[in-house]
Simulated scan of single mutants.
Amino acid sequence: MQLITHLPGRTPLVLDSPHSGTTYPADFAYACDLSTLRSAEDTHVEKLYDFAPALGVHWIEAHFPRSYLDANRDTTEIDVTLFDTPWPEPVATDPKVLSKVRLGKGLIWRTTDDGVEIYQRKLTVAEVQARIAQCWQPYHAAVAQAIEAAHRQHGYSLHINCHSMPAVASSNATEFPGEEHADFVVGDREGTTASTALSRLMCEHLSGLGYSVAYNHPYKGVELVRRYGDPAQQRHSIQLEINRKLYMNEQTFAMTAGFEPLKASLRSLVERLLKTDPRTFQVL
C-alpha cells in the first residue's frame, strides 16, 4: 500500500498536501460512519495542484487519511485517553496545543469535526507507534528533504502547505464554530514562518483574481509550517486553505463546475511564486 507520494522538483517551490489521503488502512478499525469520517479529508486538493510537478515543483502527498494520523501535528500532540495502557513517549504541555487535543484533534483523532467519536475501543501503544513510523516519519522526511534540496539549489525555498476547509466551521474544528470562512486563508503563524511580504503577495494575488482572502484567521498554520519555516534563513513556509464550496459538494464529495476555474487560479498563483525571489522580491 502506497502511503506517500514524493515527486522531487527542480524549482525553489515545494508543495505538500498532508490531508487529502483517501486510502484507509485495514488496521484503522474505526466505528463511525465512513461518510462522516471522510468529512475530515481535504478532498481533491491533490487534483487541484496536479499541474505542479510538470512545472518543476516539488510535490509531497499523503495517501493515508488525516483521521488515521494527522501529519500536520507534532508527535507529542497525543490524547492519552485513547490508550489501553499509558503512553510512554513525551506529551505536549502547551495550553494552545492541549486545547486542540481536547477537541479530539491531536496526532490521532478521537472525534470528527462534528464531535462524533471515531472509536469504540481503546488503541494500543504499538499500533499508534506503527502509524508514526509508517506515516508521520516518512512524510516529514520527504518534506524536509524537498525543502533542503530547493534551498541548497536556489539559496531559498518557498513551501506551501496545501489544505481545504469547510465553508462553515464545524463544532469541533476550530475555536470559532459556525464561522463562515473566506475563499482563502493564508497563514504564516503571524509572520514567524515566512516573510510577511511573501504572504501579502499571495493575498494580493488571490484578491486580484476576485477571491475573498483572510490572513492568519482562523488558520495560522500548524506543525508543517512551524517546523520547516525559518524566514531569517530564507526558508519560507505558508499554509494555504481553500474553501471547499469553491470546487466541491461538501455532502457528496463530488467536484463541481467551479473546480477547473479554481485550478486555473491556483496555477496562476504557483506561476507567480515561481517568478518571485523572496530575497529581493524582484521578478525572475
Rank of each mutant, 00 (worst) to 15 (best):
P177E: 07
T196F: 05
L240W: 00
H159I: 01
M165I: 03
Q137G: 03
P177S: 08
S39G: 07
M1A: 06
P278Q: 02
S237G: 03
S17E: 03
T276V: 13
L246I: 08
Y49W: 15
A149P: 14
E41Y: 09
R279Q: 09
S39Y: 02
P278I: 04
G104R: 05
L69R: 01
L206W: 00
F64T: 14
L198Y: 01
L34S: 06
I238L: 06
V143M: 00
H44W: 13
T252I: 13
E180Q: 15
A264S: 08
S170P: 06
D114Q: 12
G187P: 03
D42L: 07
K122T: 00
D183K: 11
A167R: 10
Y139T: 05
S99C: 14
Y68F: 15
R189F: 08
H236C: 08
S265K: 00
K275C: 14
P86T: 03
I242H: 10
H205L: 06
A40N: 13
A29C: 13
L48I: 09
H63G: 02
T22E: 07
L240V: 03
P95N: 13
F281E: 14
D16R: 01
N172Q: 12
W87C: 10
F83D: 08
W59F: 14
A169H: 09
C162M: 08
G229W: 01
Q251K: 10
S265C: 02
H205M: 05
A232I: 02
F64D: 02
A71Y: 03
G258V: 06
G221I: 00
K275R: 15
Q129A: 15
Y30V: 07
Q2K: 11
R189V: 10
R102F: 05
P25W: 06
V283P: 14
H181N: 11
A92N: 11
M1Y: 10
P88D: 06
A167Y: 06
A173D: 04
V222G: 01
P65E: 14
R73P: 06
W59Y: 14
C135M: 03
H58M: 08
Q234T: 01
F28H: 08
H181W: 13
R38W: 11
H63I: 03
G208Y: 10
Y30L: 04
V270A: 13
R10N: 11
K105M: 12
S39C: 05
E89C: 10
T23D: 13
L107A: 13
E190C: 01
W59R: 09
E46H: 02
V57T: 07
A257V: 06
G56D: 06
W109Y: 15
S99R: 15
P231L: 04
L37F: 15
R110V: 04
I108R: 02
P166D: 05
L37A: 15
E89A: 11
L48G: 04
